[in-house]
Design a protein around this nucleic acid. Structure first.
Lengths: 106, 106
DNA sequence: GGTTTAGTTAGCCCCATGACTAACCAAATG
DNA sequence: CATTTGGTTAGTCATGGGGCTAACTAAACC
């Protein structure tokens, strides 16, 4: 769905959220630890985690009084697929003739 | 630069702009032709092309009274690199032990 | 059981972004 | 030269997203 792509790209367009991902590929962590490096109010940070979860990039579970966040790497697939598809089409086309410039219905 | 990543992801988060890319991988085209499938006012569409250009995903040149738009596929590199880097780190970590669940400094 | 500690909820502000209309240029054409 | 045609500029509007504080809940701890 194109809607999911919007969500994924929009979610990854934020540096805080990308930083969270970068931290999570090294292993799951509770909110507080994730929030530590980011100089912002906790509720604000919480919203970022929520957005990551809405995009399916992350899942969370409650453990005692803390919430553990972990990655869902499969969620990247649509983005990766889209990128490689575009690249493939481009390369097929570019490879066909010399370099570039063509098409353009007047 | 992280700023460029924000720009790239944010630019690709819009379905109209992704559709333009999808059209351009098949070859360059003038604004009007690009705009045709999108049911919106021309100025609005123009803005989208401007944003693509600001992100470096596209270049344009004037040819007579029409403006020709063409792809800049190298511009995707930062996004692709980031994605594969995250994936690589994840897989290295996940491969190390059984499957998942680990870390979490209390 | 009172106090930290870790989240959570609610409500507010501000700015950027997408979309629109109206009006304006400048090639191309009759 | 008048008129299309293809953009371009300017200005308005509404929404959503990021950020904040204040106040509340619920585990853990002493």
């Amino acid at each position: 769905m194109t809607n999911q792509m919007n969500l994924l790209f929009a979610t990854l367009a934020d540096p805080t959220r990308r930083a969270v991902i970068e931290r999570l590929v090294a292993g799951e962590a509770p909110i507080k630890e994730l929030a530590a490096p980011h100089d912002m109010a906790l509720p604000t940070f919480l919203r970022h985690v929520e957005r990551l979860e809405e995009a399916g990039l992350v899942t969370t579970r409650k453990e005692g009084r803390q919430r553990i966040v972990s990655m869902t790497p499969e969620a990247f697939a649509p983005v990766e697929d889209w990128l490689t598809t575009q690249k493939r089409i481009w390369e097929r086309r570019a490879g066909a003739r010399g370099s570039h410039v063509q098409r353009r219905t007047p």
